[in-house]
């Protein structure tokens, strides 16, 4: 009923909403060497997570005390742990867990945070006040404390970590989306669409969401890095993935007692976390600069 006539000269406020816009962003991104490295690393990590386990020769969880705490060698690239398990194999198997937690927890945060932000920004007034007060309450818990508290009552498991880290990510999304929604809602073309009789639902999904997608993508990428760090911390505290799961934080927690004489048990899982988090940070930084070159330092 309210189809936009094609070819109507409605200027898009952000480049990202059109195919040409995406091409410009891709061009900018391509010039950023650090971001490209980050992007390729993420791609490689995803491939490792999917196919890596098929190529490892050792079992990630089977205990063999005759092989315990061997130093790195050509047989065991990253050595073996206190249960005689190959550390390299465990890190490869842990990749999918790390990415799974990272992606899914941020998705949970997005699923709740983005609608909250849109409603607050679009409808304003009381709804805005109520939603933002709720966000303020979530933000009153310093850093990862709410995640720790949630996991402590729900029990330690990967799914509860995803839920807890997801809740932790909600305020970040809600705030950014609210701000962008408010900015976009004020633009003339939204008034134009409304004058054409479009429903709120249609305006939000067809006209606002596509225009605020870029800050959401940037936020999501950086949030994945943070989520992976927090999740590994929760597992390190014994509140997340439980042994013998080859989750990297849990591996560090177990390797801790042996690292003085056998540093490899703590060194490699930590390096794995650093590399993955670094890749997402590099890519996220690059995306932010590509989407919004003005803020580039």
């Amino acid at each position: 009923m309210s189809e936009m006539p094609s070819g109507l000269p409605v200027e898009s406020p952000r480049a990202a909403s059109t195919a040409a816009g995406w091409r410009i962003i891709y061009k900018r991104l391509k010039k950023n060497r650090a971001a490209i490295i980050g992007g390729y690393l993420i791609l490689i990590f995803i491939l490792i997570a999917i196919f890596g386990p098929f190529f490892t020769t050792y079992d990630p969880v089977r205990v063999d005390y005759s092989l315990k705490l061997l130093p790195p060698s050509s047989e065991h690239w990253f050595g073996t742990d206190h249960n005689g398990r190959d550390v390299f194999t465990r890190i490869i198997h842990g990749m999918s867990i790390t990415l799974y937690i990272g992606f899914l927890s941020v998705f949970v945060g997005m699923l709740v945070g983005v609608p909250l932000g849109i409603f607050a920004g679009y409808y304003g007034k009381y709804l805005d006040t109520i939603i933002m007060r709720f966000i303020d309450i979530l933000l009153a818990f310093p850093g990862i404390l709410l995640a720790i508290a949630l996991v402590s009552v729900l029990g330690g498991s990967i799914n509860n970590v995803i839920l807890a880290v997801g809740v932790f990510s909600v305020p970040g999304f809600a705030r950014i989306v609210r701000g962008s929604t408010m900015a976009v809602s004020k633009l003339e073309y939204i008034d134009a669409v409304r004058a054409l009789g479009a429903s709120d639902f249609r305006i939000i999904f067809l006209h606002i969401l596509p225009n605020i997608i870029s800050p959401i993508i940037v936020q999501a990428t950086i949030r994945i890095a943070i989520a992976i760090l927090i999740a590994s911390g929760l597992s390190f505290l014994g509140l997340g993935a439980q042994p013998p799961t080859p989750e990297w934080g849990a591996m560090l927690s177990q390797g801790r007692s042996y690292m003085f004489d056998h540093p490899h048990v703590a060194l490699f899982p930590g390096l794995a976390i650093v590399t993955v988090v670094l890749a997402f940070n590099l890519f996220g930084d690059g995306l932010r600069d590509a989407f919004d070159p003005k803020t580039k330092a």
Binding site: L229, S232, G233, F236, F260, L267, G270, I273
Partner: peptide, 22 residues
């Protein structure tokens, strides 16, 4: 800086103990 905030702080702590204390 990029490395520093991509690092889990508990791991940094473990590594510091390893080198400076042990």
């Amino acid at each position: 800086a990029l490395f520093s905030f991509s690092m889990p702080n508990f791991w940094l702590g473990l590594m510091l103990i390893k080198y400076f204390s042990i």
